[in-house]
Amino acid sequence: MTLSAIDFSAASEARPGISLAEPGDYFALLKPRVMSLVVLTAATGLLAAPAGMNPVLAFVSLLAIALGAGGSGALNMWYDRDIDRVMTRTAGRPVPSGRVAPENALAFGLALSVFSVMLLGLAANWFAAAFLAFTIAFYAVFYTMWLKRSTAQNIVIGGAAGSFPPMVAWAAATGGVSWEGFVLFLVIFLWTPPHFWALALFKMKDYGAAGIPMLPNVAGERSTRRHIFAYSLVLAPVGVLPAVLGFASPVYGVVAALLGLNFVRLAHRVLRMPDGDVAMVPAKRLFAFSILYLFALFAWLLAEGVLSHVWGLHVA
């Protein structure tokens, strides 16, 4: 199915010229769950950075990064409307369901993207703004329009887009990048493949129907399970690095180590799954825990950043 062959839903065809979209539909275009993760990781980058920002400018910078993520999400939904329509997980999204016209989603995504970059440049600095523009382009063009449909390593390379927000925020606070910001990037980057491959294991039929070359559909379940376990072995120690490098407390290091060990334990259960497992319970458990894992790490780092910057308490 090509993009040009896609039409609107029957409802939208029955009422030509009348928009079926409600404010909630445009909010859904922003991928609010993804945006909430971007806000958390970007806020962590802002507060972990050694250079403090004016609170108002910091808030505006965080808003700009969030809007950039939302704009790229809208562009992703605009372009992916053909495959979203055939996947049960995404068929109800605003564009494939016909509630938002494709051209409106495109205009909305472009406007938000441009506005977010300009806003970050004015609130922080133009290096951070350029970094944000690169991040948006990386996700909306490089990943969405090419990698996602062309290679089984799509989520590995494309996952960098979701890993950039703490570095963008660090750049907003300091005007540059550093090893600390790169470590925050690396945690998300290494987390993304096992997180999405666990999902792909129990959504193989969806991805197969959409023609997306996710690893389980291309290399098989056994290879995917091995990849998940291998990434978990690397992710677990990297999650502890903020404490090792001194920009997080030893308590964070203990918490990260325990969470990392549990991540490896659950990944090992996935590794031992038999081929053709219908229930996919270990994969579903790892997927659910992976969300908790990343949230817990960055929420802890964020809390330590608040204590340090707002309350003046040195916790690292």
Rank of each mutant, 00 (worst) to 15 (best):
M1I: 05
M1E: 04
T2G: 06
T2R: 15
A5Q: 15
D7R: 14
D7V: 00
S9K: 07
A10W: 14
S12A: 15
A14R: 13
G17M: 14
D25H: 12
K31N: 08
K31T: 07
L37T: 05
G45R: 11
L47Q: 08
A48F: 03
P50E: 05
N54M: 02
P55V: 08
A58S: 09
A58Y: 07
F59D: 06
V60L: 12
V60K: 05
L63W: 10
G68S: 12
A69Y: 05
G70S: 11
G73R: 07
L75P: 08
W78R: 00
R81K: 11
D84K: 08
D84M: 04
T88D: 15
T90F: 11
G92R: 15
G92P: 14
P94R: 01
V95H: 02
V95Q: 00
G98V: 11
R99G: 03
R99A: 05
E103S: 09
L106K: 11
A107S: 02
F108C: 11
L110M: 14
V117E: 10
A129T: 01
L132Q: 11
L132E: 10
F134Y: 11
F138N: 11
V141F: 12
W146F: 12
K148W: 01
Q153P: 07
N154T: 01
I155L: 11
G158K: 09
G159D: 08
A161S: 13
S163N: 13
A173L: 02
T174W: 05
T174N: 02
W179V: 01
E180H: 15
G181Q: 04
F182P: 04
L184I: 02
I188K: 03
F189I: 01
F189Y: 12
F189V: 01
L190F: 09
H195K: 03
H195V: 07
L201R: 00
M204L: 09
K205R: 14
A209W: 02
A210R: 06
G211H: 09
I212E: 00
I212T: 09
M214D: 00
T224P: 09
R225K: 13
R226H: 08
S232N: 13
S232R: 09
L235R: 05
A236W: 06
V238D: 04
P242D: 01
L245Y: 15
V255W: 03
A257W: 10
G260M: 07
L261S: 11
N262F: 11
N262H: 14
H268P: 02
V270L: 07
L271K: 00
D275A: 04
D275C: 00
D277N: 12
A283E: 08
A283N: 02
L286Q: 08
F289W: 08
F289G: 00
F289P: 03
I291Y: 03
L294T: 05
L297I: 03
L302Q: 15
E304L: 03
V310S: 10
W311D: 02
W311E: 11
L313C: 01
L313I: 15
L313N: 06
L313H: 13
L313G: 02
V315F: 06
